[in-house]
């Protein structure tokens, strides 16, 4: 007997009593169901994760502009026309204290090293003026921090081909100025702040931000072709510059 024949005989002897279990088909089907369920669960979890990742920024962007409706629904004869902030300043001051009552009044702000999420800033000396005439918010401004009142009616300068609308607010929370430039060939470079600007985005659109002389900070972007926006803020309002910018809908 040669090796091949002996190998055949050995194999036959080895598997002589081997038979597939009667539940083989059921086991295979069960295994298949388990695999299918596992894949479905994985796909479901992945889809939920993607949905969550997509929805959270959307929800945040909605939260950033709550003042549009409330500003218009508020009684026009009330003393304050500006929306109250959702988060109060870290100092916990009342909405309209006198400047003398503020513990940090008169302090010198640090414009460049100021963290965005930091506490209240001084900035009292940056205010362009005291409370002015109470006018309604322009329809394209949907959010301003509390403690601000309009410094006056919005001013319009230039000609129809290059028109600039400027609105200013001031108060205990610092000051805010929004300039809306409507011109045919306006570009981001025309609105860029002085110094070394940094790139950022406002509602997904490319923007430039930088510090202004003094303690102000500015952000500029092209909201749509032919319409540029520059938002400048000083004092405590500077911390909410990006939120104010997100609320500008020209």
């Amino acid at each position: 007997m040669d090796l091949e024949s002996e190998l055949r005989a050995a194999m036959a002897e080895q598997v002589a009593g081997t038979a597939a279990p009667s539940s083989l088909v059921a086991d295979v089907r069960r295994r298949h169901r388990r695999r299918t369920n596992r894949i479905r669960a994985t796909v479901g979890v992945a889809a939920a994760s993607v949905a969550a990742l997509a929805l959270v920024p959307t929800y945040q962007s909605f939260r950033a502009t709550p003042a549009g409706d409330s500003a218009t629904s508020r009684p026009t004869g009330g003393p304050a026309i500006l929306e109250q902030p959702e988060r109060r300043p870290a100092s916990g001051l009342p909405a309209s204290p006198s400047p003398e009552g503020r513990p940090e009044a008169g302090t010198t702000p640090k414009p460049s090293a100021h963290p965005k999420t930091g506490g209240a800033d001084g900035g009292g000396d940056d205010r362009p003026g005291g409370p002015g005439a109470t006018v309604k918010l322009p329809h394209w401004v949907t959010y301003l921090p509390g403690g601000l009142t309009a410094a006056g009616p919005c001013t319009v300068t230039g000609d129809p081909a290059h028109r600039t609308t400027t609105c200013k607010w001031g108060g205990t929370a610092g000051w805010v100025q929004i300039a809306l430039v409507k011109a045919g060939g306006v570009g981001l470079a025309d609105l860029a702040p002085g110094g070394v600007p940094r790139r950022t985005t406002v509602r997904g659109m490319p923007a430039l931000t930088g510090d202004r002389p003094g303690s102000g900070r500015q952000v500029s972007w092209i909201a749509k072709p032919g319409t540029g926006v520059t938002v400048t803020a000083g004092g405590t309002a500077k911390e909410q510059l990006m939120r104010i910018a997100e609320g500008v809908r020209p």
Partner: peptide, 30 residues
């Protein structure tokens, strides 16, 4: 099933491994 299990058993060496591999192979074919 029996013939495939015998082949699997000879290639794997262990009966338990052979059954497991045969189930996996049949599931893939299924």
């Amino acid at each position: 099933g029996d013939a495939l299990l015998r082949t699997a058993s000879l290639m794997c060496g262990a009966r338990q491994d052979a059954e497991d591999i045969l189930q996996t192979a049949l599931e893939k074919a299924y």
